[in-house]
Design a binder for these strands. Structure first.
Length: 597
RNA sequence: GAUCUCGUAGCUCAGUUGGAUAGAGCAUCUGCCUUCUAAGCAGACGGUCAGGGGUUCGAAUCCCUUCGGGAUCACCA
């Protein structure tokens, strides 16, 4: 039983014995004792003063005395203002540590012990390469998936690929007109980059044509609609919907280039998916479902033929679901995709959508529509909404060329990792491949940690001029500490053989050792909070605190050089366990650890 | 205009269901490598928690209000 559970039970007895009253769980507030006071666990006594009809000090004394008398693990207490500080016995902490240490998956729930959850992330358009905003999205979605798994959920990782629509037709038109048959092979460009290039060319040409039309007397609106290249793109979209073989073939070819490019990027990122959904496969289903919904009276139709949902009774608006010409909108395909997924994985309790916070309204509508259509899971679906990555000048804008490309930033991180490592010169003896591997993982840890350590819901700032730090509260710092723990284990084995935790007297444990054990004790709660809030930053911050404390310990106390054999084995075990928890924590962020750096 | 969201050290960010003297990193300045990896450790400097009011034993946290950023309010995606 955890010490918090023990104390909670004892406290219930205490209040009933001392004041003849029952208490509600919300009155029990334990917190970690602040460093400046003596003790491990602190009880806030203010909630009890009404019951006790005494001052906070006396109430604290009374409860403290009771707990000390009735709970073996409580060795001493003191009361400061309204705070009851309890000192828990070293024996308790040592026993806890032994138990935690024997479980390599300490803190994790048994796999597949909770309902299936589907997590969607990435979900790119196929007309341009991935950028820094996608990285935040993808790392976030992947990390939340890992966190839910560690909490016992079955998880299906999916994406929706927006492979159809006017945007891809723009790239296709531009390629047809100006591409001269260029391919990824002939140009040496990554497929997604090549297609993105033609998207930019389209945009440039489109702007020129608009300008010309306006110069000839057209209004801005007319110019936007009537520009010849835009009309070509729209015609191509119609041809695509009519399954014109030539257009379809071009579409397939160019999308295939993009997918190959994306796959390379995902691989560098170290993320994957269990199943991919394509908008081109789901938009028609969405259209049918909307029409069914109309037939079943869930929606209504305007005179022009467009189909709408009325959500005014739920505090939202009326919202169009299908255009008057019967073509699908953004939400139409999302309805189709969601329904298809529930059919593919009938045990899915709910879906999590990792999508930027500018689409909060869209998802509110989507979830209510799903419920209207009879999918009760809609009620539990969750929009994992995250803030933008902003540059010092504001938003990233592809038009102004301020987009930070995903491949570029990852390559840069690796380069910086290499520079730092070569300066340090600690990787002698490794092959070039092994070194490259280390650079890659260190660089990625810096990037992932940078993007995941901040609260997902908040906008964050990225300054390309100052490259991401490798010192302080960063991925490499955590890697570094992990490497230290690995080196200790390795050297222990070389010098003393197999590690076996000796029986030691708990009274010899120092404050920092106890503090580290208590930090490990917190891990399951942190993981639980992170899962409940879909918030990887809690894991990042926890791991940072753990690592920081370990470094102090490492600096102040001998570990391998400790002469007392029992204590040495304890310290090496503690170090190794810290390493393991760090590895678990970083794993939850999608960061894989290196053994040397 | 309506709705939502954010505002904490020079910069980037933490800060549990309201709890003790608001914390980290970066930057600047000091110390510490012949000893387990110095990508480290220790210290200094740095705050009207945007402003004002309220709720209470207690407010960065909850409520009201003003100011300032951002987002959403399409038969765009």
């Amino acid at each position: 039983m955890s010490i918090h559970q023990i104390l909670t039970n004892a406290l219930n007895n205490a209040i009933s014995a001392l004041f003849q009253q029952d208490i509600s769980p919300s009155m029990i507030q334990f917190q970690k004792t602040r460093k400046e006071f003596e003790g491990d666990v602190t009880l806030v006594v203010f909630p009890f003063v009404k019951i006790s009809k005494m001052g906070p000090e006396q109430t604290g004394e009374a409860i403290g005395n009771y707990l000390k008398e009735h709970v073996d693990q409580v060795e001493a207490f003191n009361v400061v203002k309204g705070f009851l500080n309890l000192s828990i016995s070293n024996d308790y902490w040592l026993n806890f540590f032994k138990e935690a240490n024997s479980n390599v998956n300490f803190g994790f729930q048994p796999a597949d012990s909770k309902p299936r959850v589907m997590v969607e992330y990435a979900s790119p358009n196929t007309n341009k390469p991935l950028h820094l905003g996608h990285l935040r999205n993808i790392f976030l979605g992947y990390s939340v998936s890992e966190i839910l798994k560690a909490n016992g959920h079955s998880v299906t990782k999916v994406q929706i690929i927006n492979d159809r629509g006017i945007h891809i037709c723009k790239s296709m038109v531009a390629w047809q007109k100006f591409g001269n048959g260029e391919t990824p092979e002939s140009s040496g460009l990554k497929g997604d980059k090549l297609v993105g290039k033609y998207y930019v060319i389209f945009d440039k040409k489109y702007k020129e044509e608009q300008k010309e039309l306006i110069a000839n007397g057209a209004t801005e609106e007319e110019a936007a609609q009537k520009a010849p290249i835009m009309m070509e793109a729209q015609e191509m979209l119609r041809q695509w919907e009519a399954k014109n073989p030539e257009v379809y073939k071009l579409w397939e070819t160019m999308n295939a280039w993009v997918y190959k490019g994306f796959d390379a990027t995902y691989q560098t990122m170290g993320v994957d998916f269990d199943k991919l959904y394509y908008e081109s496969d789901t938009y028609l289903l969405g259209r049918d479902e909307v029409r069914n919904g109309l037939a079943n009276g869930h929606f209504f139709q305007k005179e022009d033929g467009s189909i709408w949902v009325d959500l005014t009774d739920q505090g939202l608006d009326q919202k169009a679901l299908l255009r008057k010409d019967g073509t699908a909108m953004y939400i139409t395909q999302d309805i189709g995709t969601a329904i298809l997924r529930f059919r593919d994985f009938p045990d899915t309790a709910y879906q999590i959508y990792t999508v930027g916070n500018e689409q909060e309204y869209h998802f509110k509508v989507l979830f209510k529509v799903l419920k209207k259509l009879g999918f009760e899971q809609g009620e539990n679906c969750y929009h994992l909404s995250y803030g933008m990555v902003e540059l010092p000048e504001g938003k990233m804008k592809s038009r102004e060329g301020t987009v930070v490309d995903a491949d570029d930033i990852m390559a840069e991180m690796k380069n910086v990792a290499q520079e730092v490592a070569e300066e340090q010169g600690k990787l002698e003896g490794l092959s070039a491949d092994e070194k490259g591997d280390v650079y890659h993982h260190i660089g990625m840890s810096a990037l992932k940690y940078f993007l995941l350590k901040v609260d997902p819901t908040k906008n964050m700032l990225f300054n390309p001029k100052e490259s991401i730090d490798f010192a302080g509260n960063t991925g490499p710092f955590i890697q570094y500490t992990y490497v230290r723990t690995k080196a200790i284990s390795r050297k222990f084995q070389e010098n003393f053989g197999e590690l076996k935790l000796a029986d030691i007297d708990a009274s010899i444990l120092c404050k920092l050792e106890l503090s580290l054990i208590q930090k490990i004790y917190d891990f399951p709660n942190v993981l639980n909070d992170a899962a409940r809030e879909y918030n990887p930053s809690l894991i990042a911050n926890y791991t940072y605190e753990l690592v920081k404390e370990f470094n102090s310990f490492y600096h102040d106390y001998p570990i391998l050089r400790e002469e007392n054999e029992g204590l040495r084995s304890f310290r090496v075990t503690l170090s190794s366990k810290v390493g393991r928890v760090v590895e678990q924590g970083m794993g939850l962020l999608g960061i894989s650890m290196v053994e040397r750096m």
